[in-house]
């Protein structure tokens, strides 16, 4: 009874391994490469022929003249895109309050006059540690600081933010978000 099944078990396993483990991924890779050449390799952004980042992966910013993103819990450095990680800090963990207070302090030190309530996504860690986005509220919160440090009009900063904002899919699904790296690249190349 069992003996008769050994041969088909091994052979079907081998055939399905070839089909699902070799042919299937290679087939998907081939078609994807032809249809979506930019996306398959990580949606890299090029400036003057040099890769300056990916539009899907965030980068760390703490200079007051840049837009800041989410807190990243990757190690050994923030936004380590070869070792994604969330903070996994629980809601009642004192470390959570420390993390949040630390970020509030840094934000206020960079922009002492700003007394507006801070949007929650700006003081919490992302799930991946690589979140490329923040909410519009979190971006607006930083407009006055960036404008002051760069000496450009607030409206110009807002324009750049809006240019790099993606709305909900069909106006319904997901959340509207601002791409932090793209905003900062545009800020750097902005001519007064």
């Amino acid at each position: 009874m069992i003996k008769e099944q050994i041969k088909p078990a091994i052979l079907i396993f081998l055939v399905l391994t070839v089909i699902t483990g070799i042919i299937y991924p290679i087939f998907v890779t081939g078609i994807s490469k032809a249809l979506f050449p930019k996306e398959v390799g990580g949606s890299l952004i090029y400036r003057d022929g040099k890769a300056v980042g990916s539009s899907l992966i965030g980068q760390p910013f703490d200079d007051p003249k840049y837009l800041w993103g989410r807190i990243s819990a990757t190690s050994p450095a923030q936004y380590n895109a070869s070792s994604s990680s969330g903070s996994n800090i629980g809601p009642s963990n004192p470390a959570l309050i420390d993390e949040v207070k630390g970020r509030i302090k840094a934000l206020q030190a960079a922009d002492p006059g700003n007394k507006a309530p801070i949007p929650v996504d700006l003081v919490t860690s992302s799930a991946s540690g690589l979140d490329p986005h923040i909410s519009l509220a979190a971006a607006y919160y930083q407009v006055s600081r960036i404008s002051k440090h760069r000496g450009i009009a607030e409206s110009a900063v807002k324009d750049i933010i809006h240019k790099n904002t993606t709305g909900r899919f069909l106006g319904l699904i997901g959340e509207p978000v601002v791409n932090v790296l793209k905003v900062n690249l545009d800020l750097d190349s902005y001519k007064k």
Partner: peptide, 10 residues
């Protein structure tokens, strides 16, 4: 509660 969540998913 945005701790451990991605901005695009909210």
């Amino acid at each position: 509660n945005m701790e451990g969540k991605e901005a695009r998913f909210g």
